[in-house]
Design a binder for these strands. Structure first.
Lengths: 154, 154
DNA sequence: TATCATGTAACTTCATATGTTACATGAGCG
DNA sequence: CGCTCATGTAACATATGAAGTTACATGATA
C-alpha cells in the first residue's frame, strides 16, 4: 500500500500558494491542509530541499513556489514529499544469505522496479500547473451551477 | 509504499510446505517464517479462505497446499495475504465535496488503478511452482559450490 | 481419554506517522 | 534598538496498525 495522504495534502497547499500571489504562512497552509503549522513546515522543508518552494522569515514572510508550476510535476512533489520507493517489501531480516529469500527477491524486485517506474512516469506527466487549471475549471463550473440554482428560484 | 513483509514471509512458509510432503505444523512454519505459531495461523487463515491451503487438527495435523503449486500464482497469494489495494492514498478526510480533492483524485486515481493492475499482472505471471524450482536450482548450485571448496582443500 | 494441533479472543509490545509544545533564529518595522 | 512575525527544530505526546504473546476452546487421532 502506498502511504501518503501527504501527497494529497501537499497538493492542497501548493494549489493554495499558486492562487495567493504572495507568501503564504504555515498557519494559512495548515488550514488548507487540515493540519497544524509545525507539520506544514516539516513537510514543506522536503520540498524546499528539492528547490520546489522557498521560505522567508519575518514580516511578510511565508512560503512561495520557487519554480514555474508548469515545470513542476507531481513526480517531483511525490519524491520531495519523502517516499523514496513505492515498494518496500519484505526483506524483513535483510538476510541475503537465505536462498529462499534470494529466489523471492529475484522474482519480485524486477516487478517492483517496473511498478515504481510506471507510477513515477504517470505522475511525471501531470504538472502542477495542469492540476491548478483543472481545479479552476471545476471551480468555474461549480459557480455556474450555483448561479443556475439561483436563477431557477427567481 | 507497499506493505508486506508478509508476502515474502508467507512464500517462505509455502516453499517449506512444498518440500515437506506431509502436513507442516504452525510451530514448524513459525521457524521458517521467523515468527510465532499464532501469527502463522492468522496469516494462513487468509490463504485457507482463498482455498490455497488446508489445515488439519490433531495428531499428524498441520498445513498442506490445497492446490497444485503450478496453479497458484504470486498474485493469488498476495491477494489472500490481505492487501486489498496496493495504492491507498490521501483522501484523508474522504471529503468528496472539496474541489481540490476532486482534481487531485481525478489526476491520480487512474494512475493508481494502472499501477495496481501492472503489479498484479507481474505477480500473476509467476507460479509457486516456478519459484520452488528456482529455489531448488539455487540450492543445487550452492551445494556444488561447497563441494568445489572441499575439493580445493583436498 | 490423553495428547496434539488448529482457532480465536484478548492483551501487550513496537514502529511509525502525526500532532503539540516550547524555544531558538532571523527578518523587517517602528 | 527592541518588538513582532515567521520559520526552524528539538522534544515530547498521541494515534494507528502490525506483530507478538498468552490463554483457552475445539476438534482429531492414537
Amino acid at each position: 500500500m502506498i502511504r501518503d495522504s501527504r501527497l494529497s495534502s501537499v497538493l492542497h497547499g501548493l494549489l493554495h500558494m499558486i492562487g495567493a500571489g504572495e507568501p503564504v504562512t504555515s498557519e494559512q497552509l495548515a488550514q488548507a491542509m487540515a493540519t497544524n503549522p509545525v507539520v506544514v513546515r516539516r513537510v514543506m522543508a522536503g520540498l524546499r530541499e528539492q528547490g520546489l518552494v522557498r521560505s522567508e522569515k519575518g514580516h511578510g514572510g511565508g512560503w512561495t513556489l520557487a519554480r514555474d508550476p508548469a515545470d513542476i510535476t507531481l513526480a517531483d512533489i511525490y519524491r520531495a514529499v519523502g517516499t523514496p520507493t513505492i515498494v518496500a517489501m519484505g526483506h524483513r531480516s535483510e538476510n541475503p544469505g537465505c536462498l529462499v529469500e534470494q529466489a523471492v527477491n529475484d522474482a519480485l524486485s524486477g516487478t517492483f522496479r517496473e511498478v515504481e517506474a510506471l507510477f513515477l512516469k504517470r505522475l511525471g506527466a501531470v504538472t502542477l500547473d495542469a492540476l491548478a487549471k483543472d481545479f479552476k475549471r471545476r471551480l468555474a463550473k461549480h459557480k455556474q451551477s450555483l448561479e443556475d440554482q439561483i436563477h431557477a428560484i427567481k
